[in-house]
Design a protein around this nucleic acid. Sequence first.
DNA 1: GATGAATGAGCTTTCATTCAT
DNA 2: CATGAATGAAAGCTCATTCAT
Lengths: 217, 217, 217, 217
Amino acid sequence: MRKEPRQGRSRATIESILDAAAHILGERGWSGFTTNAVAEIAGVSIGSLYQYFPNKLALIEAVRRRHFDEIMGALRSAADERVPRMKRIEAFVDGVILAHTRYPAAHRVLLEEAPRSADSRESHDEFGLWYVQGCRALLQSAGEAHAAQGDRLHISTQVLASAVAGVVHNAARQGLLSSPGLRLELMTLVESICRNNELTMVPEPGVGSCQAFGERA
Amino acid sequence: MRKEPRQGRSRATIESILDAAAHILGERGWSGFTTNAVAEIAGVSIGSLYQYFPNKLALIEAVRRRHFDEIMGALRSAADERVPRMKRIEAFVDGVILAHTRYPAAHRVLLEEAPRSADSRESHDEFGLWYVQGCRALLQSAGEAHAAQGDRLHISTQVLASAVAGVVHNAARQGLLSSPGLRLELMTLVESICRNNELTMVPEPGVGSCQAFGERA
Amino acid sequence: MRKEPRQGRSRATIESILDAAAHILGERGWSGFTTNAVAEIAGVSIGSLYQYFPNKLALIEAVRRRHFDEIMGALRSAADERVPRMKRIEAFVDGVILAHTRYPAAHRVLLEEAPRSADSRESHDEFGLWYVQGCRALLQSAGEAHAAQGDRLHISTQVLASAVAGVVHNAARQGLLSSPGLRLELMTLVESICRNNELTMVPEPGVGSCQAFGERA
Amino acid sequence: MRKEPRQGRSRATIESILDAAAHILGERGWSGFTTNAVAEIAGVSIGSLYQYFPNKLALIEAVRRRHFDEIMGALRSAADERVPRMKRIEAFVDGVILAHTRYPAAHRVLLEEAPRSADSRESHDEFGLWYVQGCRALLQSAGEAHAAQGDRLHISTQVLASAVAGVVHNAARQGLLSSPGLRLELMTLVESICRNNELTMVPEPGVGSCQAFGERA
DNA sequence: GATGAATGAGCTTTCATTCAT
DNA sequence: CATGAATGAAAGCTCATTCAT
């Protein structure tokens, strides 16, 4: 951000710019996301937009931050180890779904299409990193002592993170976000990944189908 | 395609253009996908490119077709009902992974970012439709007589399709495509979704944890 | 026009663009009429041009309108039925000549070469229609009660319109626009067509040479 | 022309190229006149076209020559001084109309839109010059001893040439070429210009309305 | 502070022309 | 002789960004 808003009206201006940005991102995709369009939808002049955001990337970075803050909230509420596992998963899924209800399509664009700011490129994306870390925490806390580690944990984490993202973003596109069935299916999915993470470590016959593919290598 | 190649060298030209296109799509994303860049990477003049592809959209449509043909091959080999369920899932997962090894990142861009050709816009994307249909077939054949139907099946299908896509595309980005762990985890994921599709229809106590969320509404 | 100018300087920009456009149209013809050339001559950037005119066609349409407004003024001043016929013809010819003095060659290009905007294509060109209507009015008012009608009038109108256009545009090309002889000859031409329109309806021997070709079919 | 055709088939090739060129010129105008399009319509490869015509300009120059030969034929037949004036005008008008019946719209494009070959630019266009000379000859022969000269003749010639061209080309566009009324009106027009050329030299009261504008300057 | 006019690099696409086959 | 694949300059147009008002 170029300068901090000092008065109330500039804070409102910034807010309307961010809303317009999220709206356009979801509605027209990254290729339809132009600063002029954002300014017009926000009802601000293009000059005002550039008074607060030095360039296009800084603008989506701000939008991204808002979105990710919501996601991270969901992950934090799922990280409380005193709560039983199911409840944690439920909190995670509900939080993630909730975070996508305002601008359903925007988040996928943010995560998949929009380029990362230059500096965070190589050290992985900052926000993406946090999200993955949150997923790993969930896996570890879920599996408690039995949780996998190393490569195995890394892969499970990636699978959990990307499966949830894929399902939620697609559901947003299909208008299925508020469907109870989707919520249920998603919880089952998360739970299944969590449980599989434990099981493959201490394979016990008959517990689940997972052992059908029992790790040999 | 604007015209069929008659001489040998033009066939080679077309092939190199498609390769370059897939390469750039994966490397620079949709916004970095410019016809000039494709021509340059392909080592042909921009004019040659336009001799075979009337416009940018026709070009990605051709790339998309190549990619989707591979995916559909995987789905077809998983559709053989005489083969046991596990084998079918294995064939599907292996086929999907294989289809992403040449240009790992390109397919996500193709599916998520790149705009569809104007005519296939409203009737859903033709290729996307086929992919989803293939997933539904897998679910139905997997669940045999017990398979869910209607809304429930619709959601399960979307979840299967988007979870697999999400995981594979992310794995491609992370360089995990060839990891055996990823393959295993993915098969477990698919199997879990398939099994859950049955179970929630005819819930039997003790079979799986899925009933923990047993449908109430 | 894409947007109305709000500040003074933009009005000047638009004016200079239109002037440059008319200039180039006359100097280099339609094939030499490129938006980049117009912008350069106008002394503005190509981006500024496109801020006011959404595309090339909208630009010439604006130039055309300016030109046609002048022509229509000439026709209107020739439509006053209280004025004697000769005076009306004089007003028409003088008006038409005057309308071509600023950018002598531009108008021919506008009328003959430049493509019409897509929407006015089939319903005949709007401006061309007005011009022809004006010519027909002149013929009818000139011939008073004796004026021809139907097919005959249609042809006379087309001949009047195209002969005047042809002569004036050629005179502009040859630098003869300001020659008094041209003005005289043009008036004679118009008067002759008007008179011929009457005579062939009520052929009286000896009145004019026109009956030499007296209509037989 | 790049090389003279030696065999029969190449003569046929050239003929079909010229026909295609005239066709396209009339149908799509100068901006739609592309060498590739001509080759395609002619049913020849683009390479063959360039074997006979070194460039685009040489091609239209050839088309122009064919057209002008027909026009010049009309003018020649109107130049025979032993024939009475009316007959000469009739021959001219009929010849001009006939010359436009094959590719009605092509000739206007040729005369008005298409650029002249570089060398004939400044010394006026060669063909255009011939046409104007023919018109002057008609005027002089028509007016016999009384014909005007100098500036006066120059202007009359330009008016005659441009009026006829304007009317005929417009008639071609409107599909009026074969209308007997058009032929009649055109002859009257030519005759009127011829007669006016004489009359203004030896003004006699009461003969025609032309003296109403009697030259004062 | 806010505005919006101005900028120009860069994109997609066309088409006259050459030359290997 | 004929073919058509290949070329690339140049066109129309967009949009991130600056800066005078």
